[in-house]
Design a binder for these strands. Structure first.
Lengths: 169, 169
DNA sequence: TTGGAATGTCAACAAGACTGACGTATTTTC
DNA sequence: GAAAATACGTCAGTCTTGTTGACATTCCAA
């Protein structure tokens, strides 16, 4: 308990950024920022009978066209029943296509259709506008720090997935 | 569309961090990091019939003891009905007390009981452990950048709430 | 004093997550 | 070639957490 405080006492100024109060600020910053982060796409989605879950699926299918259901499952961290509900509507509505795998016919490879890509563009544009404004306001050094901390905050599995996506492009 | 790319072309190296690809990385980093961010408290909560909504209420009541329902509503950004369900169970279970306001009897002032404070400690300790590790790994400059970007990412209302909380302590 | 605004409560419903069970096609393993 | 494992889809039921709508209480100002 209160490790930050004791560290602070024992190590002096250098570790002031690790106090409980500083950590609490960071926690609240994450909470409020994440709200802003999702607000714009949410606004677009509402009224078109899609939600944040659809956005996430669309985002990652766009990034890794031809990915399998299992792959997506691992990245999104939801159950297949949950993902299936979302995927079914996206396929029915003609935003995503599902092709039986060539080498392994059990797999389904997912791709965005033109309509799907158009929605992806619309959503990620909205999200990028906010990110770009924030980045520009904060400057390159801050952005580097931002990414460093976020990466350190991930679970190991997620960090692997993140780095794989990042380096695979 | 693709504003980052064109900026990149027009302004050279200095704005490389604003490319669409860099922004996309930031978006994914937020997604994966937020999962890690909530994972530890979620694990504690599961099985005790509480969820993330309860955690949030407890967190902010702890930070501003005696706050009103309306106050909390503004900070959490949910409907009062939604918050009420959460508060009801917390009050029933003896984690939160609700006192009718002295000057304005319509208001209810919320405070954590001892049991409530104990759970708050347990939850925020879990969350701080991860934050502290991430902070330590990243270092003070990165942390400063992290906070700068997050703050820039918030909606104006949320930034006001965040700064008010931060400076009110 | 009365009507509107603010605060909070109850009820019903929807989205999106979960578990568990089952079916089918395909691949891998023994 | 038979058995086990894998990939995917689906049905049914539950839980959390968000929503709207209706309503009671309290305060304040015309």
């Amino acid at each position: 308990m209160a490790e930050g405080q004791s560290q602070n006492v024992s190590s002096g100024q250098a570790l002031l950024y690790l106090t409980d109060e500083q950590l609490r600020q960071g926690i609240e910053a994450m909470f409020f920022a994440y709200r802003g982060f999702t607000a714009d796409p949410d606004r677009i989605l509402e009224g078109m009978s899609y939600g944040r879950a659809h956005h996430r699926a669309i985002h990652f299918i766009h990034c890794a066209p031809g990915t399998t259901v299992n792959n997506l499952l691992a990245i999104l961290g939801v159950t297949k029943q949950s993902l299936n509900r979302v995927l079914r509507t996206l396929i029915e509505d003609g935003l995503v296509t599902s092709h039986v795998g060539r080498s392994d016919k059990r797999e389904r490879h997912l791709t965005l259709t033109e309509t799907g890509e158009a929605l992806e563009q619309q959503l990620s544009d909205a999200q990028r506008v906010r990110m770009r404004d924030a980045y520009r306001k904060a400057g390159p050094e801050a952005v580097a720090g931002f990414k460093t901390v976020l990466e350190a905050m991930m679970d190991d599995d997620m960090r692997r997935a993140y780095l794989a996506l990042r380096d695979g492009r």
